[in-house]
């Protein structure tokens, strides 16, 4: 018993060190800003004054929110409908949703440009196209979050009960299904936003100046500012996660069972999706492998 507890703490400690050490080093790097042993917020104040920050951040937020909206409008009814009427298709949907993980960014870009070339330039020539790409890119995570939420409730019984009570489909969606899928929907929304805010390769290839693309540009001039901004972005992402967890815990108090399932993997995903991870890694390489 005692040995297993010790093993648990050691494992947790090692894992904590593995996660925290690079971040601690990044924070130290940004606070020292080239003056070893002297901590200051200089890099952070320079970051705020950096030209292009607002525009790129605004573009990223717009794209992320757009991708999130499209994801939810597209996936929530689809997953509910498939689970309700065509449960055998779940395996197909599951496999399709995984495809983006196996396709390189360049191929996705070429495919998207080819597929959407007939669309008006208001879509293909603006960040709207980026939002559409991110919907596909986030699908392995967003689909799973929503699907886990749907499977954690007794969908058929709730639908039958609602319908037999006289509820129309619209009423059923707004009053019964969506509130009970809240945690899954929030998780899907968060994952899509996090992934969209942090994506660099596709935005760069397609020539959009999103926050990560801008950040990499800044990093070439001032790595301390880039890392400071990365830390800020990481904290912002974590803040979003905490907000999500609190929003979900309100739901948990009211209902057992369904909560939490949609959040599977969110924390791990934050690490790879946050824009900070791109810039921290790059800045780390530039500054002699500090990170």
């Amino acid at each position: 018993m005692k040995r297993s507890r010790t093993f648990r703490w050691v494992t947790l400690g090692l894992l904590g060190f593995y996660v925290i050490a690079p971040m601690a080093a990044s924070i130290q790097f940004s606070l020292e800003a080239g003056y070893k042993g002297r901590l200051s917020l200089t890099a952070y104040s320079r970051a705020v004054a950096e030209p292009g920050l607002g525009t790129s951040l605004f573009t990223s937020v717009k794209v992320a929110l757009g991708a999130m909206a499209i994801t939810l409008v597209l996936l929530v009814p689809t997953v509910i409908f498939v689970n309700l009427r065509f449960p055998r298709w779940r395996a197909v949907l599951d496999a399709v949703s995984l495809l983006p993980l196996g396709v390189p960014a360049v191929v996705i870009v070429l495919g998207v440009l080819g597929a959407y070339k007939g669309l008006p330039s208001a879509i293909t020539g603006t960040p709207v196209i980026l939002a559409l790409v991110y919907v596909v890119l986030a699908m392995p995570y967003s689909y799973r979050a929503i699907d886990a939420g749907v499977r954690s409730i007794d969908l058929h019984v709730l639908v039958d009960a609602g319908r037999s009570m006289g509820a129309s489909w619209r009423k059923l969606f707004t009053r019964v299904l969506l509130p009970n899928l809240r945690s899954g929907i929030l998780a899907a929304a968060f994952l899509t936003v996090a992934l969209s805010l942090g994506e660099y390769a596709i935005a760069s290839i397609m020539g959009f100046n999103t926050f990560p693309v801008w950040l990499v540009g800044v990093e070439g001039n001032d790595p301390y500012v880039a890392v400071a901004l990365s830390i800020a972005a990481l904290l912002l992402t974590w803040f979003l996660l905490v907000v999500l967890a609190f929003a979900g815990s309100g739901r948990r108090r009211r209902s057992s069972g369904a909560f939490g399932t949609g959040l599977v993997g969110v924390e791990a995903e934050v690490q790879s999706a946050a824009p900070s991870s791109v810039a921290i890694a790059m800045a780390g390489e530039e500054s002699g492998g500090l990170v």
Partner: peptide
């Protein structure tokens, strides 16, 4: 939803929210 019937199910069917 237009039949005006009441139904009680085998599984617990209360709306959790």
């Amino acid at each position: 939803h237009r039949r005006n019937l009441g139904m009680v199910f085998q599984a617990y069917s209360l709306f959790p929210n």
